[in-house]
Protein backbone atom coordinates (compact mmCIF):
# COMPACT_ATOMS: atom_id res chain seq x y z
CA UNK A 1 0.00 0.00 0.00
CA UNK A 2 1.25 3.46 -0.89
CA UNK A 3 0.41 6.50 1.18
CA UNK A 4 0.88 10.16 0.32
CA UNK A 5 0.83 12.74 3.13
CA UNK A 6 0.70 16.47 2.42
CA UNK A 7 2.03 18.73 5.18
CA UNK A 8 2.12 22.49 5.52
CA UNK A 9 4.61 24.77 7.24
CA UNK A 10 2.33 26.90 9.39
CA UNK A 11 2.73 29.95 11.57
CA UNK A 12 2.54 29.21 15.25
CA UNK A 13 -0.29 31.68 15.77
CA UNK A 14 0.00 31.50 19.54
CA UNK A 15 3.23 33.42 19.08
CA UNK A 16 2.04 35.85 16.42
CA UNK A 17 2.63 39.51 17.27
CA UNK A 18 1.36 42.62 15.56
CA UNK A 19 2.84 46.00 14.74
CA UNK A 20 1.15 48.99 16.38
CA UNK A 21 -0.70 49.66 13.12
CA UNK A 22 -2.01 46.10 13.13
CA UNK A 23 0.36 44.57 10.57
CA UNK A 24 1.12 40.98 11.52
CA UNK A 25 4.82 40.43 12.17
CA UNK A 26 5.03 37.21 10.22
CA UNK A 27 8.81 37.30 9.84
CA UNK A 28 9.20 37.13 13.59
CA UNK A 29 6.63 34.34 14.02
CA UNK A 30 8.00 30.82 14.42
CA UNK A 31 6.80 28.24 11.91
CA UNK A 32 6.13 24.59 12.53
CA UNK A 33 4.65 21.59 10.75
CA UNK A 34 0.86 21.91 11.04
CA UNK A 35 -0.38 20.16 14.16
CA UNK A 36 -3.06 18.19 12.35
CA UNK A 37 -0.69 17.49 9.44
CA UNK A 38 1.70 15.90 11.89
CA UNK A 39 -1.14 13.69 13.11
CA UNK A 40 -1.89 12.73 9.50
CA UNK A 41 1.76 11.76 9.09
CA UNK A 42 1.63 9.78 12.33
CA UNK A 43 -1.35 7.80 10.98
CA UNK A 44 0.62 7.01 7.83
CA UNK A 45 3.68 5.90 9.78
CA UNK A 46 1.50 3.76 12.03
CA UNK A 47 0.26 1.98 8.89
CA UNK A 48 3.87 1.42 7.89
CA UNK A 49 4.75 0.09 11.33
CA UNK A 50 1.80 -2.28 11.15
CA UNK A 51 3.07 -3.63 7.85
CA UNK A 52 0.06 -2.27 5.99
CA UNK A 53 1.85 0.46 4.08
CA UNK A 54 5.20 0.04 2.37
CA UNK A 55 5.62 3.57 1.20
CA UNK A 56 4.93 6.85 2.99
CA UNK A 57 5.67 9.85 0.78
CA UNK A 58 5.52 13.27 2.40
CA UNK A 59 4.99 16.35 0.30
CA UNK A 60 5.22 19.99 1.18
CA UNK A 61 4.95 23.13 -0.91
CA UNK A 62 7.63 25.76 -0.44
CA UNK A 63 11.31 26.33 -0.91
CA UNK A 64 12.70 27.62 2.38
CA UNK A 65 15.07 25.93 4.78
CA UNK A 66 12.18 25.55 7.17
CA UNK A 67 10.32 23.56 4.55
CA UNK A 68 13.38 21.35 4.27
CA UNK A 69 13.42 21.06 8.01
CA UNK A 70 9.86 19.77 8.29
CA UNK A 71 10.57 17.23 5.56
CA UNK A 72 13.60 16.01 7.53
CA UNK A 73 11.36 15.85 10.59
CA UNK A 74 8.98 13.73 8.53
CA UNK A 75 11.83 11.38 7.64
CA UNK A 76 12.76 11.15 11.31
CA UNK A 77 9.17 10.18 12.12
CA UNK A 78 9.30 7.41 9.56
CA UNK A 79 8.43 8.74 6.11
CA UNK A 80 10.10 6.82 3.28
CA UNK A 81 10.27 9.62 0.77
CA UNK A 82 10.12 13.42 0.96
CA UNK A 83 9.16 15.82 -1.79
CA UNK A 84 9.38 19.56 -1.95
CA UNK A 85 7.25 21.28 -4.56
CA UNK A 86 9.20 24.46 -5.03
CA UNK A 87 7.15 27.62 -4.81
CA UNK A 88 8.74 30.80 -3.51
CA UNK A 89 5.82 32.21 -1.61
CA UNK A 90 3.56 29.24 -0.86
CA UNK A 91 1.37 31.21 1.55
CA UNK A 92 0.11 33.28 -1.32
CA UNK A 93 -1.25 30.25 -3.20
CA UNK A 94 -5.00 29.87 -3.24
CA UNK A 95 -6.52 26.77 -1.66
CA UNK A 96 -7.45 25.48 -5.10
CA UNK A 97 -3.86 25.88 -6.29
CA UNK A 98 -2.55 23.93 -3.32
CA UNK A 99 -5.09 21.19 -4.02
CA UNK A 100 -4.11 21.12 -7.69
CA UNK A 101 -0.44 20.69 -6.81
CA UNK A 102 -1.16 17.83 -4.44
CA UNK A 103 -3.53 16.06 -6.81
CA UNK A 104 -1.19 16.51 -9.80
CA UNK A 105 1.63 15.00 -7.82
CA UNK A 106 -0.60 12.12 -6.76
CA UNK A 107 -1.63 11.50 -10.35
CA UNK A 108 1.87 11.73 -11.70
CA UNK A 109 3.56 9.46 -9.16
CA UNK A 110 0.53 7.39 -8.16
CA UNK A 111 -1.56 5.47 -7.77
CA UNK A 112 -1.70 5.99 -4.00
CA UNK A 113 -4.10 3.97 -1.90
CA UNK A 114 -4.46 6.66 0.68
CA UNK A 115 -3.87 10.39 0.64
CA UNK A 116 -3.70 11.92 4.08
CA UNK A 117 -3.84 15.57 5.05
CA UNK A 118 -4.40 17.48 8.25
CA UNK A 119 -8.02 18.51 8.71
CA UNK A 120 -6.97 22.15 8.86
CA UNK A 121 -3.78 24.18 8.98
CA UNK A 122 -2.86 25.76 12.29
CA UNK A 123 -2.77 29.26 10.82
CA UNK A 124 -5.36 29.62 8.06
CA UNK A 125 -7.51 26.63 8.99
CA UNK A 126 -9.63 26.68 5.84
CA UNK A 127 -10.12 22.89 5.86
CA UNK A 128 -11.00 22.90 2.17
CA UNK A 129 -7.79 21.59 0.60
CA UNK A 130 -8.42 17.93 1.49
CA UNK A 131 -11.96 17.94 0.06
CA UNK A 132 -10.68 19.69 -3.08
CA UNK A 133 -7.97 17.07 -3.57
CA UNK A 134 -10.61 14.33 -3.29
CA UNK A 135 -12.74 16.05 -5.94
CA UNK A 136 -9.83 16.64 -8.28
CA UNK A 137 -8.79 13.00 -8.05
CA UNK A 138 -12.36 11.75 -8.14
CA UNK A 139 -11.97 9.60 -5.03
CA UNK A 140 -14.05 9.46 -1.84
CA UNK A 141 -13.43 11.95 0.94
CA UNK A 142 -13.41 10.97 4.58
CA UNK A 143 -12.89 14.18 6.47
CA UNK A 144 -12.14 15.26 10.04
CA UNK A 145 -11.00 11.89 11.30
CA UNK A 146 -10.57 11.61 15.05
CA UNK A 147 -9.76 7.93 14.47
CA UNK A 148 -8.55 6.10 11.37
CA UNK A 149 -8.45 2.39 10.69
CA UNK A 150 -7.47 0.52 7.55
CA UNK A 151 -8.63 -3.04 6.97
CA UNK A 152 -8.81 -5.16 3.79
CA UNK A 153 -8.60 -2.37 1.28
CA UNK A 154 -11.10 -0.21 3.16
CA UNK A 155 -10.60 2.79 5.35
CA UNK A 156 -12.90 3.74 8.22
CA UNK A 157 -12.84 6.97 10.14
CA UNK A 158 -14.72 8.37 13.08
CA UNK A 159 -15.51 12.05 12.80
CA UNK A 160 -17.10 14.47 15.25
CA UNK A 161 -19.19 17.00 13.39
CA UNK A 162 -21.63 19.67 14.57
CA UNK A 163 -24.60 17.35 14.99
CA UNK A 164 -22.96 14.22 16.24
CA UNK A 165 -20.56 11.46 15.53
CA UNK A 166 -20.14 9.95 12.08
CA UNK A 167 -18.46 6.76 11.03
CA UNK A 168 -17.46 6.85 7.37
CA UNK A 169 -16.19 3.76 5.56
CA UNK A 170 -14.99 3.56 2.00
CA UNK A 171 -12.89 1.43 -0.31
CA UNK A 172 -9.48 2.82 -1.07
CA UNK A 173 -8.16 4.85 -2.81
CA UNK A 174 -9.50 7.68 -0.68
CA UNK A 175 -8.56 11.05 0.72
CA UNK A 176 -8.63 11.24 4.51
CA UNK A 177 -8.21 14.40 6.56
CA UNK A 178 -7.04 13.89 10.12
CA UNK A 179 -7.69 16.10 13.16
CA UNK A 180 -5.17 16.82 15.87
CA UNK A 181 -7.23 14.61 18.18
CA UNK A 182 -6.47 11.50 16.16
CA UNK A 183 -3.23 10.61 17.90
CA UNK A 184 -0.18 11.81 19.76
CA UNK A 185 2.54 12.10 17.10
CA UNK A 186 5.67 10.21 17.99
CA UNK A 187 8.84 11.94 19.10
CA UNK A 188 11.58 10.52 16.90
CA UNK A 189 14.57 8.86 18.49
CA UNK A 190 17.95 10.52 18.20
CA UNK A 191 19.14 7.76 15.91
CA UNK A 192 16.16 8.34 13.61
CA UNK A 193 16.84 12.05 13.55
CA UNK A 194 20.50 11.51 12.73
CA UNK A 195 19.56 9.09 9.94
CA UNK A 196 17.05 11.60 8.57
CA UNK A 197 19.83 14.13 8.13
CA UNK A 198 21.32 12.19 5.25
CA UNK A 199 18.13 11.37 3.40
CA UNK A 200 17.49 13.09 0.09
CA UNK A 201 14.67 15.48 -0.62
CA UNK A 202 13.10 15.22 -4.07
CA UNK A 203 12.30 18.49 -5.74
CA UNK A 204 9.72 19.38 -8.30
CA UNK A 205 7.70 22.42 -9.37
CA UNK A 206 4.06 23.10 -10.16
CA UNK A 207 5.05 23.52 -13.82
CA UNK A 208 6.71 20.11 -13.92
CA UNK A 209 3.60 18.63 -12.40
CA UNK A 210 1.42 20.46 -14.86
CA UNK A 211 -0.54 22.07 -12.03
CA UNK A 212 -2.11 25.38 -12.88
CA UNK A 213 -1.63 27.67 -9.89
CA UNK A 214 -2.77 31.15 -9.06
CA UNK A 215 -2.07 33.53 -6.24
CA UNK A 216 -4.69 34.66 -3.86
CA UNK A 217 -5.28 38.34 -4.04
CA UNK A 218 -4.92 39.63 -0.49
CA UNK A 219 -5.47 43.37 -0.30
CA UNK A 220 -4.74 43.80 3.35
CA UNK A 221 -4.34 41.83 6.51
CA UNK A 222 -4.48 43.44 9.92
CA UNK A 223 -4.97 42.57 13.55
CA UNK A 224 -8.56 41.92 14.48
CA UNK A 225 -10.08 42.15 17.90
CA UNK A 226 -13.68 41.85 18.92
CA UNK A 227 -14.32 45.01 20.91
CA UNK A 228 -14.48 43.86 24.51
CA UNK A 229 -14.83 45.88 27.70
CA UNK A 230 -11.99 44.07 29.49
CA UNK A 231 -13.18 45.02 32.97
CA UNK A 232 -11.07 43.27 35.59
CA UNK A 233 -12.67 42.06 38.78
CA UNK A 234 -10.23 40.97 41.44
CA UNK A 235 -11.49 37.96 43.36
CA UNK A 236 -8.22 36.95 44.94
CA UNK A 237 -9.12 38.33 48.36
CA UNK A 238 -12.78 39.17 48.58
CA UNK A 239 -14.67 36.61 46.55
CA UNK A 240 -18.14 37.62 47.78
CA UNK A 241 -17.67 41.23 46.80
CA UNK A 242 -16.20 40.33 43.42
CA UNK A 243 -19.08 37.99 42.59
CA UNK A 244 -21.63 40.62 43.58
CA UNK A 245 -19.88 43.07 41.29
CA UNK A 246 -20.02 40.54 38.46
CA UNK A 247 -23.71 39.75 38.93
CA UNK A 248 -24.56 43.44 39.03
CA UNK A 249 -22.62 44.06 35.81
CA UNK A 250 -24.35 41.16 34.06
CA UNK A 251 -27.74 42.39 35.19
CA UNK A 252 -26.96 45.81 33.78
CA UNK A 253 -25.92 44.17 30.52
CA UNK A 254 -29.27 42.43 30.53
CA UNK A 255 -27.78 39.00 29.94
CA UNK A 256 -29.01 37.26 33.11
Amino acid sequence: MRVLVAVKLTYDINQLKFEKDGTPLLDACPRVMGEADKCALEEAVKLKDAGKAEEVTVLTIGSSKEHQRILKDAYAMGATKAVMVKVDDPDSLSALSVARIISSYAEKTGPYDLILLGSGAGDTHSSVVGPMVASLLGVPLLANADRVSVENGSVTIVSTLEDGQYKFTSKMPAVVTVTSEANEPRIPTIRDILRSKKKPIDETTPEELGAHVSKINIESIIKYEVPRKRVKIDATDNVEEAVEKLIKALEEEGVI
Partner: peptide, 9 residues
Amino acid sequence: FGGNAMAKV
Protein backbone atom coordinates in the same frame (compact mmCIF):
# COMPACT_ATOMS: atom_id res chain seq x y z
CA PHE B 1 -4.59 33.37 11.98
CA GLY B 2 -6.99 31.88 14.47
CA GLY B 3 -9.30 34.87 14.30
CA ASN B 4 -6.52 37.26 15.34
CA ALA B 5 -6.40 38.99 11.99
CA MET B 6 -8.84 40.18 9.38
CA ALA B 7 -7.91 39.92 5.71
CA LYS B 8 -9.47 41.60 2.74
CA VAL B 9 -9.37 39.24 -0.20
